[in-house]
Design a protein around this nucleic acid. Structure first.
Lengths: 222, 222
DNA sequence: GGAGTAACTTACTACGGGGTCAGTAATCGT
DNA sequence: ACGATTACTGACCCCGTAGTAAGTTACTCC
């Protein structure tokens, strides 16, 4: 009665199709908590509900697991955000929408973890690093630059370098995303709702690039 | 001739006054390269020109060395930047000056290293984390907010939440500093000089908070 | 149902590096 | 000049964990 050698509940199940994702999710959690070097594969295994050996059936080693995790996740999200830009709308409206959708992405729990890891560890993997730069921030900036560019042509925005503007907007989104995750511990954002922060972002950005005389600036002391 | 037991060149010298700084500098280099967990104390020792045992004469363990390193460096710089704000000047001019000086700080080699480490490792040391938040970003934002606030009163800037504006400006400085360090590997900044980037920053910020009608925004479809 | 196979586990090895401590070399005092 | 003192060294211990391989269990298909 105590033993269950042939009983209906097996000690574990064969799930070769689902293991990689389970392991990658667990890896995100543990690497995010301790970093690449300090993370223990045994912890990842436990969190994934498998044993350490199983990880080596799907990934050649710790570093490869880490890289695979980094590679897989962010580009998916970017593509989603990208696809949500309304086609027929003013540049202003497109920008607003892109910021709003990016803001949603940027507040997901995995965003903060992933970008912390990328910032701190990815320079050890130059090719992955370059790929990432190209696929995420560059892509995001180019989209923003394109919207800005259209807005300049239509007269909605002032004559600003679109690339520079894209860089600025991306920077603001990025940092605020990272901060939003640890908001509770950061005094200057504790009392604001997510939507209030987004409103501040949009307001700031639209004023920065919006069509405006900005009169007394140019002849102050040149 | 080959031995030098009592010769004029001792194998090492006693420098109890200078060791801590030497070790901290070496620590910045090695921790910056490999992170807290992966850094080897032997490497730090070698880089500082001492043996591993010596480190333990001045620091109780690896973590304490790391924390001491974090604690010591950034607040110095902030104080310097802070002290350079011109007293009798327009808010616009103060802001310009503060951005310029922060930009100089933010491009120092140690900035990028330090903030990468802070972002990735400091959440393991909650009290140090809180102290840092208070002494660096908060302080910087408050200074910026104060300048913005004065500018609103004087009519130079539009009616914007000064805290929010301070947060935005700080974000932009921060990210651009981190990027400036790895500029060579980041396409969208390779062709710009440091001063050009600074100009773009100042331009963007001043337009964002500058007094301006920003006319067609409010009645577009509300 | 039972042989065969693929999926998974567990026990093990190897080793790198944090931390220690007994000894050694420089410096100071007299 | 020669102990006494303090700064520093380097060999050592030992633990934690990446990676491995032999053994075990679940599933498949005849």
């Amino acid at each position: 009665m105590s033993e269950s050698t042939h009983a209906n509940t097996p000690r574990w199940r064969r799930l070769p199709g689902e293991r990689p994702r389970q392991i990658l999710d667990a890896a995100l959690e543990v690497f995010g908590e301790r970093g690449l070097a300090a993370a223990r594969l045994e912890d990842i295994a436990r969190s994934a509900g498998v044993s350490k050996g199983t990880i080596y059936l799907y990934f050649p080693n710790k570093e490869a697991l880490f890289c695979e995790m980094i590679r897989e996740i962010p580009s998916r999200h970017i593509a989603v955000v990208e696809s949500m830009i309304p086609e027929n709308a003013t540049a202003r409206e497109q920008l607003r929408e892109y910021l709003r959708n990016s803001w949603d992405y940027v507040r997901t729990p995995s965003f903060e973890i992933l970008y912390r890891l990328i910032l701190s560890e990815l320079h050890h993997f130059p090719d992955l690093y370059e790929q990432f730069i190209e696929e995420v921030p560059m892509r995001s900036m180019r989209i923003l630059a394109a919207i800005v560019s259209r807005g300049i042509d239509s007269g909605e925005f002032r004559d600003i370098d679109p690339i520079a503007a894209g860089r600025m907007l991306h920077s603001l989104l990025f940092v605020h995303g990272v901060w939003a995750a640890k908001r509770a511990r950061i005094p200057f954002m504790r009392d604001l709702s997510d939507n209030q922060v987004l409103d501040q972002l949009v307001d700031f950005c639209l004023h920065a690039i919006g069509q405006a005389p900005a009169p007394s600036a140019s002849h102050v002391h040149t």
